[in-house]
Amino acid sequence: MITHPSATELEEALAAFQAGSPDDPRANFLVRVADNARATLEREAVLAPAAREAATNRLQALLDQDGDFESLNAQLCAALRAGRLDPLDHALLAHLRASALDQIAIDQPGYSGAAALIDAGA
């Protein structure tokens, strides 16, 4: 599951959001942020299931274990933190690259770092 914030939290923030005066630059900025949040939720609904399944498959191969995404991802974090896995390991970086591209496609598809990453992998 995507967290910090989760889709549920974004929905809560959107439900509580009230547009302010159109003359107020700050209020206009927040309207754009809210539009962006709705678009993010739409992309997440479409893209997240397949991204999660692919990430789970990659993690199972990388860690040579069965398990769901949350437990395997937590294991990967613990292994990195404890120094049991080289942070520049090629198989690890391949997983991190795929995960980063899938996540940016949901959060910020126009972000230039995705183009840079794809260019470097070509």
Partner: peptide, 11 residues
């Protein structure tokens, strides 16, 4: 909503 969404810039 701003504070919620900023978390999605971590990616």
């Amino acid at each position: 909503i701003e504070r919620a969404m900023i978390g999605r810039r971590a990616s």
